[in-house]
Nucleic acid binder design. Structure first.
Lengths: 160, 160
DNA sequence: GACTATTCCATGCACATGCATCTAATGTCT
DNA sequence: AGACATTAGATGCATGTGCATGGAATAGTC
């Protein structure tokens, strides 16, 4: 079972081929619509992930996962949360999140501290620098979203 | 710039936080709609990729990337294409595609052969076994799509 | 025809991810 | 209290991916 994004790529989805569907061993009546929708979802995801990652990396030295964690923290009143809480809002495995937090901590953008009530847990807190970075990066992210979320889809993002 | 899926994960997207938007340094008027849409796209993609990969792996020993290549080839009249052609229809880098084809070849599902007209190019041809595997796996894929493409979204796919 | 630029694919390398596992801390049951 | 099960988070490991590069073949230029 795969899931999360590593470095993303680009590419268009063309290569049309006559596709009849609904043969004898088929699953349901019209799954071709599902397939079309699925491929569009893949293409959109690829395009956006690629563009977002490039823009964030180039402009703010942040990966998409890193930015997402910063964003979640920045949205909270006290700018901090337990790792387990963050995990619920990000599509990353617990281990991947642990490492993302590790990278953010090494960069000085968050701080890990022991949770008083539950000494197993770790509270992750956004630093001032972390908030600043997220604030700087936010317009970049929004711009990419605005440009590509509803764009015709067919152009690659290739080398930016 | 990240993009393509490695092993996918699951998780829900909750963690609601009061989000006002349109502060002084904002990009555009209402980007919160874009953000919502983007997060839904991410969640849907994560859910589907995770479920698809698990189902294909468990039932047919195929990764999502492998299945996609088989599917593209199976859709073609002669069940073969040059690598560069396949590359245009799949969201993988050229190198990743090269390795996917390598794995498929090692599994006996495709064959690589030199292209007569252009001796740089490689023609990839689906074997009978490859076609069979794709035919077997297809209902699995369609079923997952049918089940989850429009599902309420909020449940994880966790351990299958 | 010789030279250069370009295209096609494979591969070395770095890196992010998921799984399995480990340690520590809590919770539960008797 | 003691024993077992559960949960939180970190880490070893295997794997898949993208980038940079390389070698081979082709296309374009003079």
């Amino acid at each position: 079972m795969r899931l999360h994004s590593m470095r993303m790529h680009d590419n268009v989805a063309s290569m049309t081929a006559t596709k009849v569907s609904a043969g004898p061993g088929e699953t349901s009546a019209d799954d071709s619509a599902d397939v079309r929708e699925w491929r569009e979802l893949l293409a959109r995801h690829a395009d956006l992930t690629c563009a977002l990652d490039r823009a964030l990396q180039a402009g703010h030295s942040l990966g998409m996962s890193e930015y997402e964690v910063l964003e979640r923290l920045a949205e909270l009143p006290d700018r901090s949360a337990k790792v387990a809480t963050i995990a619920k809002s990000v599509h990353l495995s617990q281990s991947a999140l642990s490492r993302v937090i590790g990278r953010l901590e090494a960069a000085g953008l968050v701080e890990r501290s022991m949770c008083p009530e539950d000494r197993r847990a770790v509270t992750v807190c956004l630093t001032d620098e972390g908030l600043q970075r997220q604030t700087e990066a936010k317009p970049t992210q929004r711009q990419v979203l605005a440009e590509r979320l509803h764009a015709p889809l067919g152009k690659t993002c290739q080398a930016l």
